[in-house]
């Protein structure tokens, strides 16, 4: 049976003669659901007008960025305070996981609206949290340096990483990492 006349609902295993793996050629149900035939010349595409109109909607959400970052930074700050209060590594773990995800959310949010500097610090903090030892006081300084500069970036609305202030903030974090990461 060829792949094109297989029942759409059933997998149709065929032995590949070259390497013995089992191959499943299925009818393209997804394309059929868009109203096209699986093997015809018509190619599914989303019209440019729809893509452009989605782009307008995304751009309209840029005005929400400062408030949204502030909310996530507050939650991140809270997770950090809770991590520090935890008596042991095990107890700190869930708070650090939350901190990790909040840093990741800041990175995602900033990258969506091209806030390059905030994206840089969000990613740097997220990556540092992966290897943090909460009982090492030096590591606490590095996290705090990240959080402090992120607030500065937000409050001073710094978007790019090329300006003097941006360079200064990046230097602060780089020095903290260099000095205290051991």
């Amino acid at each position: 049976m060829s792949s094109s006349d297989a029942n759409p609902e059933s997998a149709n295993p065929q032995e590949d003669m070259d390497d013995g793996v089992e191959m499943f050629h299925r009818v393209n149900r997804l394309k059929m659901k868009t109203g096209l035939l699986p093997n015809d010349d018509n190619v599914f595409r989303i019209e440019k007008e729809k893509v452009d109109s989605a782009q307008v909607i995304i751009e309209s959400k840029a005005s929400l960025y400062p408030n949204e970052v502030k909310n996530v930074l507050n939650a991140l700050d809270k997770a950090w305070q809770d991590s520090k209060k935890a008596a042991t590594r095990d107890k700190a773990k869930p708070h650090l996981e939350k901190l990790f995800h909040k840093a990741n959310q800041i990175k995602d949010l900033a990258s969506t609206f091209s806030y390059v500097l905030m994206q840089y610090f969000g990613m740097s903090l997220r990556d540092f949290i992966e290897k943090i030892d909460i009982e090492n006081p030096k590591h606490l300084i590095i996290v705090q340096a990240h959080i402090d500069v992120m607030w500065v970036v937000l409050n001073e609305n710094i978007k790019d990483e090329g300006g003097d202030k941006a360079k200064e903030l990046k230097m602060i974090v780089a020095k903290a990492i260099e000095k205290y990461s051991q």
Binding site: F24, I46, D108, S111
Partner: peptide, 26 residues
Amino acid sequence: VKPVSPKSLSSHLAHVINHPRPFVKA
């Protein structure tokens, strides 16, 4: 890859619909 833009999302959706690869069991 993030950030997801309408352009990248639409082209990935279209690719999944137009070019389904056969599945392999190994």
